[in-house]
Design a protein around this nucleic acid. Sequence first.
DNA 1: CCAATAGTGTCTTTTAGACAATATCAA
DNA 2: TTGATATTGTCTAAAAGACACTATTGG
Lengths: 228, 228
Amino acid sequence: MDGSLSLAVSTVIFALRPHPRTRLPVLWVPLVRRIRQPHQGRWALPGGPLGAEEGLATSAARTLQETTRLSPRYLEQLYAFGGTDRAPTTAERTVSVVYWALVRPEEADAGAVGVNVQWFVADELPELAFDHSLIVEYALWRLRNKVEYSRIAAAFLGESFTLAELRGVHEAVLQRSLEPSNFRRQIETSGRLVATDAYRTGGRHRPARLYRHDRSIQLSDNGPLTER
Amino acid sequence: MDGSLSLAVSTVIFALRPHPRTRLPVLWVPLVRRIRQPHQGRWALPGGPLGAEEGLATSAARTLQETTRLSPRYLEQLYAFGGTDRAPTTAERTVSVVYWALVRPEEADAGAVGVNVQWFVADELPELAFDHSLIVEYALWRLRNKVEYSRIAAAFLGESFTLAELRGVHEAVLQRSLEPSNFRRQIETSGRLVATDAYRTGGRHRPARLYRHDRSIQLSDNGPLTER
DNA sequence: CCAATAGTGTCTTTTAGACAATATCAA
DNA sequence: TTGATATTGTCTAAAAGACACTATTGG
């Protein structure tokens, strides 16, 4: 130990995609293969050292962009990890400020990313480098809590969407089915959605009304904090 | 700007004490007067650089001990602040990992602390150094949110307490009165309290049963995180 | 017409809030 | 006995969950 300390910013990036077997939508995360010691060959969260003139959230967004070619639809600080035992074999002490993000992976699909980047089903990860397994677990816990009382599910959808589509996001994140009529009532009484006069047609059934989110309401209430 | 980066750990320390005018219990925080530039003379959160061999929470607990001679009854990470504009006049860039803590100030009272430390009513602070006013505001928001759905209020009380005492803590934190019978029912159905067979006597009224918290339940559910 | 999903309405259970009524102590 | 707070109970309103029923489309 030489007492030197470095500060890194990493990001847990979530997207919804069909599960390879079940075809049902599930959460995925992109990971980066480590090409040097320690933990060479293992998968790790995308990230890197904080730029000298860069804010923490800016650094997370940059990493996200470099890793996935996407912009985050939602970005929030998760936690700062700074235990002295995070990388016991290395001389350098690293504190990591970790963010979590939601993206919409439509355009840029798995192929567009580099050879050392790969998307994984979030609930079926291999053992990751450092304490990154714990970090992803914690990010999943936060996401699943937060989707129940905030509007972050919107980050996975486009400008307008049907209630069934929104419900599908909730079901995929929470891993359980939700009663359509009760879900509708809950969303309606929350007052966070605005009905448009457009409909989604094409299915062999009654067309569904399209809704959009009330733009005057933040995706998430973080109190006095409004980073970026 | 020379690009160097330092990492500091600060702590927002909350205690309950009577308001100087109303005598009603309110939240107080200890602040430290800055004895050098920038912001010389202003009040700031206690804290300092992260020790080389020290975990983040350990550093926060040490600062708390040095500032108040107390041990935290509850300690949780608040947020990592790392904007590039936090101290524009200085050459050094500082990222602060901030914790918040609850203490019981019975023994060590205001007098015991150093000359450059002073306790303030949390809702009546002067303008603080750096972005510390925003930080305290955010910590207050977190505390007031969390007291409603967790057991952290227990950190302000002793081993056993009456429901009126517990309600008093909630009322002081939330700044509103709570209906005694409904508060009782809510606490009872939560199953987090255990009735003892002891009573608090001495008042000119019916003695109140003493309760204690179920030790098998954490003060706060932080999911997969169990720092320390 | 039928299959499928959208959307409405109803009933029950749970939870929160207001508040009346009774219990028990110290003075 | 009285004043004070503890404790129990009751009523109502709001929210959550289960589920029946009607509406509208494409085929």
